[in-house]
Each structure stands twice: as structure tokens, then as C-alpha cells.
Design a protein around this nucleic acid. Sequence first.
RNA 1: GCGGACGUGGCGGAAUUGGUAGACGCAAGGGACUUAAAAUCCCUCGGGCUUCGCCCGUGCGGGUUCGAUUCCCGCCGUCCGCACCA
Length: 888
Amino acid sequence: MVKVRRKISVLLSEKPGMATERYNPRTSEPRWQKAWEEARLFETKNDDGRPTYYVLEMFPYPSGRIHIGHTRNYTMGDVVARYKRAKGFNVLHPMGWDAFGMPAENAAMQNKVHPKEWTYQNIATMREQLKMMGLSLDWSREFATCDVDYYHRQQMLFLDFYEKGLVTRKTSKVNWDPVDQTVLANEQVIDGRGWRSGALVESRELAQWFFKITDYAEDLLSAIDGLEDWPEKVRLMQRNWIGRSEGLSVRWELVPETAPAGERELEVYTTRPDTIFGASFMAIAPDHPLARKAAENNPGLVAFIEECRHMGTSVAALETAEKKGFDTGIRVKHPFDPEWTLPVYVANFVLMEYGTGAIFGCPSGDQRDLDFANKYGLPVIPVVMPEDADASAFQIADEAYSDDGVMINSRFLDGLSNKQAFEEVASRLEKTLLDGKPVAERKVNFRLRDWGVSRQRYWGCPIPMIHCEACGVVPVPKADLPVKLPDDVDFEKPGNPLDRHPTWRHVKCPKCGGDARRETDTMDTFVDSSWYFARFTSPHANEPVVRDVVNRWLPVDQYIGGIEHAILHLLYSRFFTRAMRDTGHLDLAEPFKGLFTQGMVVHETYRAEDGRWLAPNEVRIESTGGERRAFEIATGKPATIGSLEKMSKSKKNTVSPEDITESFGADTARWFMLSDSPPERDVEWTDDGATGAHRFVQRVWRLVAEIAPALREIAPKAGRDGDAAAISKPAHKALKIVGEDIERLAFNRAIARIHQLVNDLQPAFSALGTADEESRAAAREAVEILIHLIAPFMPHLAEECWACIGGEGLVASSRWPDYDPELVVDNTILLPVQINGKKRGDLTISRDADQAAVEKAVLELDFVQKALNGAVPRKVIVVPQRIVNVVA
RNA sequence: GCGGACGUGGCGGAAUUGGUAGACGCAAGGGACUUAAAAUCCCUCGGGCUUCGCCCGUGCGGGUUCGAUUCCCGCCGUCCGCACCA
């Protein structure tokens, strides 16, 4: 039999049911949203005395439409917010817009819309979309980072940081994106390409503004240990990103007759000074000053350096690049043996940005060095061997040994562990002098680089600095803030419109009053998102934050967002909080106490016969037995069902939040997105799943609406015996567990428990017609509990049900009920009984039966006696309240 | 290459961290109601067998234990992050 799946609209036709009207979210949801708004339920007061709880979802970029992935994210936060509110907390749950950035400028170029207009238009659309979801957000605190009010305060912070020495301007090699005509941070370059444009990145020298995040490297690293409510994965990613290493910086004396004029030494950084007797060459970066000097009269070297530069960017080149070097002819003296000299190569694999841009190669202990040595015929001296190896026979051929072990072939180090050797070499070289200074110095090195925040763009926060011929760089006085973006700009040409604006950049120097020019760089948008969570606590304050207030709210108790921000956004925010602390704005270091990274919403992909991507509403799915086949509606031709992918425009596998809210309502969408899949994992959007969720919405409504008339005048009271207890017990058990599950963000489990409660209550409720007073009171209470349990997930339905049973006020402002501890335990328990570890039956026994009583009862069981066949068991293991195992 | 996570029915996933494997949902099949459908309700639903019961079963192979999805060792596979980092 072929069953054709029907369009959603069929399911929604509101034919009157026998007893109860179907629940209609389209009329109900806006009504309750209005009720909440009029009661100002979600507007949070800073001076409320109750304990605070701050739940925050990463704010969206106003791209134009809310994506279904956003709504899953916000729903999770909303469940927590509504639950915590019901638990008596003063909850802060704000929303705003990460509104600066390139898409607005791209739109300006393509569609001739002003970025401001485009952005605020998008915000207006998206705000309406969000409001349809019934999120309990405090809209009175809303702001966009492109609001002058916001970036004004960001400029204040910038000046404070500058004064504190946390901002610096340096000329540095930057990643230049030729398409976006802007500078990218290292981390915005992915595989040699701009993270947004995808263009191959070039390297350029430019004067740039930097935040000195490296000043906090050590603290940012060690404080990760204290972030116990963060996913381990994210903590690890941050640790690796900061990349701390302990090593030794060693100065090698150049052999004078081989050295370029004026050069006397080469400084290298190493984490393995223990392998110093295994050194066989030095390698320096192509852009190392010594390499440049050496190239001055060496055309071959010039050509090699040039070659290195060119291969630098393309992905393929980087991945497959052969380790190559060029002998400069320069030689260095070994620090422990002036007679021993080593060649200096320029090598394509040495990075100028890391350490000193120079290394010593120890081929036996490093695979890369070994490959290099083998290629250029350099000596390979094994210096570390595994502890159980034989020193006389230990050889290195094609595989380096980089693990810990025992020193060999290393003179005074022989026999030491490599760790001891590290210490020995370090302390000896610290005492050895070269040109009056120690040859070596212990040094901690970080992979983390300073944060370049200059962007050559219009749509960003202007950097409040002025360049004066006479006075140099002068900060804009705070009284002159904000430095506003001019509105009259053109986007005809690529590059920075601020730079070519006729008047904006001309300004008087605040110091000497002479003609000067404004900084035309704007800030990286990561700056905007590095403190918005703090601004939400006092969004209208004159200062960036109000110290007492921000101290009370921060850290954010639960922050929820995508794993894609695991490194940068979170690291920058951690830096900003420290910087704000050190400039006196607040008194804490860590902005986010709990972090949760949610999964994506994915959907099947469909392709037409000719390979075109098809949107879900362009295909019809037929199921024959268990087999699903797709057809393109327009042509009737078969289509291919492809893999699950993150929803994206390019693959057309998107489902918009309106599609769902307009047909099923927000509650169904909310419920579905949190069902089944654990929140940290991806969830697959399916029509079947959505209709299933909607079926449950209707089921709850029917259950409540049908029982309501019988319960309207009944006072709720838990039942302790008989039929009444059979209603109250599952209700109280669910109440306990759902609360615990929400606390753990285990929404899928909470939902399963609610399903189960409905399954449990349904038969009891249909028998209620003949039931006693006690059962009715228990039923009344159970319904109230059920409504409270669904309220965080399906707030509109909860209100409708609440009104239906004649509940007072709004569910959204009422307390989470307390469970009765006596009702969540049973007096008799069903104890599984195993024989030799295999379950053979159950024992029903009183909960407080002691071990001996349980053992006795077990041995009397039929199936146990049969299994024992008269023999005495070797052992009976009784795990209280859990299980019994009889070992025959 | 390094680091991490994961692997359970047709599918998404539960399993109180060593104690009844498969909760709950989806899909599928059967039935009731109906002129018919939708909606709703009831039943079945890991595999096998000699079916009132028994055997096998949580990627594969071993181990520890009275007892292992959970712990240990070794494989296989999938996904993610990082990477010429000295």
C-alpha cells in the first residue's frame, strides 16, 4: 500500500472533535504572548532581592531571517529561564544583535542599501520572528552593537584599555584579504583563505591596533582549570590555542669569518635543550633578519626566500610542501664546544612568528628535523633512547625518537633522564656568558598572539584615535565621544569608505589644536561581542557598566551557543572581562560560569534528476512499506534523497521557523527541537517528528480539557492510598525528575518523562467519572503538576490548560510545585532476582525489608528453588533497593 | 601526524555511572470506531528456537567481576578539533 504523506495543512483543519475542540495555536499563542507582555513578566529588575540567575544565548547576527538553529538555541535558554523563574530566581534573560560586520557592507554594495538601514530592517524582521516563538526575553534591555549608545561605551572601554597599556599599535605582517580589502586575524584565516570571503590571503605590512591579550596568556590558561561547568572539549581547545610551552632561549655565536657584517649571534628557542648534543644544523625562517642579511649578496638564497613566500598561502602547497632548506654558508659554534660548528640553513618550515624564528635541528629526536637531515646529508646522532634500550646498539634511521628516555652520546649528560638533562643544560648555559650576557635564558612561550583589532571597514565601531603630525597618536578625549560613523558614505569602490570620506577624517588635534586626521580603522566585530553580556546588566547606563550591578549579575550562570565559538569569542570575552576588571569596571575575571554548546539542526537534502538541489517543499515523499522515495513536485520526476546536512541556503535544505509556527505553532516547534536528541548533538528536522510533537500538544490539550469540567471546583490534594495514590505518585515522581533533568539541561530526558506521565495519567483520568473525592483531588493536583512541567517547554499550551482548569493568574508567573518526598518512593519494591548473573524473575517486597529478610524471601521463590535444585547457594548478593544475585 | 569524542533495535535515543539492556518518541504491522477517510483508542514490534519457557544480543577479540553498554588491554570504524609550534 502506498501512503502519500499529506501536507501539514490537512492536519490542521479544525473540525470540531466529539467532545473537545482541537487546540488552535494560531489564535492561542499570540493571546498569551500579549498577556505576558502586558504583565511585563519578563522585564527584570536589578534591585529585586531574590537570588539572581543569568541565562544567555549567544546573540544573533541580523542576517535577515531567523534560522531554525537559532530557535533551538533560544528555546533551550528559554526552558532554563522559565524554570529558574518558577524556582524563585530573579532571572535575567536578554536579547540583542551582533549587528556590525561585513554582510551589511556587502549588501550595500550589491543592493545599494545603506548598511544601517539594511541592518535595522533585518533586526525588525527578526525580532518579530523571535517574538512568535514565545521566548521569555526581557526586550526592554535589547540593543544592537551598531547602536551609537553601545559603541560609544565600547570606545570608552577602548580608551580605558589604552590608558592601562592594554592597547598597542604595531607595524606587523598582516593577513590581507584582497576581496574584502581588509586585515584578518590569524584565526580568521582558514587554510590560507579568508574565513568569510574564501579568498587567498596575502601578506602585507601595516600599522595595526592590537589588544595585548598575551599579557593575560598565563592567567587565561591557568584559569581554565576553574571553569568546571564548561565542556571538557572547549577547555581543551582553549588550552591548545593558548599553547604554552616551557623552554630555553639559546644564543649561538656565529663563526665570525662566515657571518654577514655586523651579525654576531643567532638566538633560537627550544623546548628540548636536553637534545643539544644531537644538534646537527640550525634553521631560520625565510623572513628572519639574518636570512635577509645573508641574502644580500647571495642570489640563490634570494630566489629560495622568494619561493618560500609564494608557496606560503595555497592550501595544497601547505599540505604537501616538502621540507626544503638553503645553506647560507653561515656557521655557528656549539655552546658547549667552540670547536664544533654547525651550518645555518634557511628552511621553509620555520615560522618567524613563533619563538625567535629560528631553531636548532636535532634529527634523532624530531621527525621533521630527521627528514631534513636525511635530505641534506646532515649527521644524525641519537641522544635520547628508551629506558630499556641498549646504548651501543641504539640507532635512528627513518624514524625519530621523540619520547622521554635516557641520555646517550651527550658527554656530561649521559645516563640522565631527558628531564634531568633539560635542567642541567639550562643551569649550565644560564651561567655561561657570551658578550657579557648569559648564553641561555629560561622562557615560557605561547602560541597565542596579540589580538589585532583593526579593520579597514566602514560598518564597525570607530577606533577613537587621532593621528597628529606633531603629537603622534592622540586618543580622542572622552568628552568628545562618541566618534560617530558618518551616514553619507559610498560603496562604489572596494576598500574603506571612511578613508575616502571628504570631511569625516579631518579633525583638530586635541593636544596641539593643529590639523590632524582620525583613525579610519574600525574594530573587529569580535570586540562588540566581548562585553555585550556585561552591558545587558545595565543597558542604558552612561558608563559601560554599573559596577555594583554587573558584579551582582556576572558571571553568566548559563551561557548557550554554538561550538564554532569555542575558541575565539569565548577567549576574547575572557580577556575583556579581565581587562575591564583591571580598568576598574567590574570585579571578576571569568564571564561565563556555565557553558553549553548545542548541536545543529540538520535536514535531509534532495536533488533533482539533473542534480539541482531541491527544497523540502519542492519534493513529495512517498513511503512504500519501509522504503522512502522522493519526487520533484513540479515535474513529477524521481528525486534523490541525500545525506543529512546542516541547514544551508546553498543546499536548500532549510525549514524556516514561520513554516512551523504558522502551521503547528511555536510550542510544537519548541517541543520537537528538544525531543529525542540530546541538546549537545545535532537534531534532524523531519516532518514526521514535527507532526508527532504536534500530536502530543493536542493530546495534552485533550487530556486536560476533557477532565477540566470535573475538576474545576476541586481543591488539589495529593493522594496517599489506593487509586488516589496511583495518580499522585507518578505525578510527583515526574515532578522530581523533570526538575532534575532541566537542571542538567537534559531536555530530551525531561520530555520523555513528561510523555510517560501523560501515559500514566490517561487511564486513571478516564476512570475518574466513578472515582471518589480523594482521587478527584489527586487528579486536580496531578493536572496542575503536568501543566507546570510542560510550561517551560510549551508555555502557551500551559497557559491555555491553566485557564481551562480555572487556574489563577498565569503559569508563567507561578511557582514550580514542590514534590512530596514520601510520594516518590514506593513502600513495596520490585527487586529483580538473578541466578548466576542472569535475571530469572522478580521479588516484590517491602521497601524497608532488611538484607536477611530479602535473602530469605528470595530463597523461597519458586524459580530460585527450581534452579538450586535443593542445593545450598554458594553466595547470595543483595544490593539494597537494586538487585539480588543468587550464585549457585 | 597529535589530541578528543563516539559506536546500543528499521531510526532518534534511555539505562540512577558496575546492578532488570532497549525507557520515551518516530517509523512499521495488525485491530476497533467510521459509509469512507482523518483524528482517536487497543495490540505487536532486537534476533533465534523445540515458544506457559530457553538461547544469543550494546562495533570486533580478550580480561577483571557474583554481575560489564558502563572498568582494563588490543583491534576496527565514524565524527570533530589542532598542526611545519621548535
